[in-house]
Design a protein around this nucleic acid. Sequence first.
RNA 1: GGAGGUGUGGCCGAGUGGACAAUGGCAGCAGACUGUAAAUCUGCCGGGCUUCGCCCUACGGAGGUUCGAAUCCUCCCGCCUCCA
Length: 384
Amino acid sequence: MLTFEILATDGGARLGRLTTPHGVVETPAFMPVGTLGAVKGVTPQELEGAGASVMLSNLYHLALRPGIDAVEALGGLHAFTGWRRPILTDSGGFQVWSLGGLRKVDAGGVTFRSHLDGSPLRFTPETVVRFQERMGVDIAMVLDECTAWPAERPVATASWERTLDWARRARAAWRGGGGGLFGIVQGSVYRDLRERAAVELAALDFDGYAIGGVAVGEPETERRTVVEWTAPALPADRPRYLMGVGYPEDILHAVSHGVDLFDCVLPARNARHAVLFTRQGVLKIKNARFKDDPRPLDEECGCPACTRTSRAFLHHLFRCGELTGPVLATLHNVRYYLDFMADLRQSIGLGALKDRGAALARSPEGPDLEVHPVSSDPREQRSF
RNA sequence: GGAGGUGUGGCCGAGUGGACAAUGGCAGCAGACUGUAAAUCUGCCGGGCUUCGCCCUACGGAGGUUCGAAUCCUCCCGCCUCCA
């Protein structure tokens, strides 16, 4: 059983509190992605230390390895992973898209061919619900068909209808057992499909509602209009979750339109690829210009990398292929995202989200970040 | 002293008459990444230019054979192995 309270609003944005069996999630919240039960390179303790209140994992991947039986036998996903705070599991619906060449969809469900060994794996709305119940997750997602982009209207409509049908079946199969079940809106870039899905799902009384089928290659403007249509159409008293999004600017936009939950692989994946999010802009830390940069990654960050080491050190670690590089970078990026969400919550509480947005818009971003040559003035040198 | 082998772009290393400015890998310089088949992938990587292309300089050095040589021949230099 989940409860969701809205504590304050600021325009379309909401400050909320989602209570789950494993704890409270202050919203808007970002859920770091731990597909296989861990954010790559990060311990559960470190993830808590970074400020994560909820983690996302993935049913498809866990079903393949180690298997649902194994997770259940080991005491459920929390006991298995050591992560003590809430867990949301994705249903495998994203893999319908991302593993498009390895699955067959029919009215009854999805048959995957394992990306590991080709063996078949059958998912139905009912089994997916059951698997997530058995793992003891706090938030389960219904099986959906993540519609590819672009999708002609007939294709999008068929996919939309299938997802709705599956949502009804999942809802009927759901027994709960502590956690909650979220429905997922599809409908590609078609406004009426998105809005009708919101209404149809609302009638099924889910514990929360997700916007899916975005961040699959569509232009930013398309994604944003989908959010602007869909989020307000979802029940106001339940959490709203934008699946797979995104960059901080995307998140700010969605928050301002009433979205409460987010997940995205970007902070973790980009960290492993030596791309760091900072208040001073995006740093591609392997770039030669950071070789001698004694400053922390981000002057205002409290993460383990920023409090003790320099850009030059991270540059060095990545250059050498040292594992600690991706680890520290991931801790940093995840912390950056979580700090960003905390800032947004504070701004909403103060009714000042617009100002926060303006500040973000002003911050330098991307490859045009100013290059800071190493100063010869000793007063500007930072020692470590 | 004798016998054999070897020398290729920053490094390693393919290539043994034309399709070679020369396969690969590494290093280097950049770029991408959105419910993770991603510690991955992509581009550039001798010099110059009007950069779909053209011109220089290049496979230890010098000379030669040939229409044409990194590839064949001669001499020289360096390195390696074995025998004395």
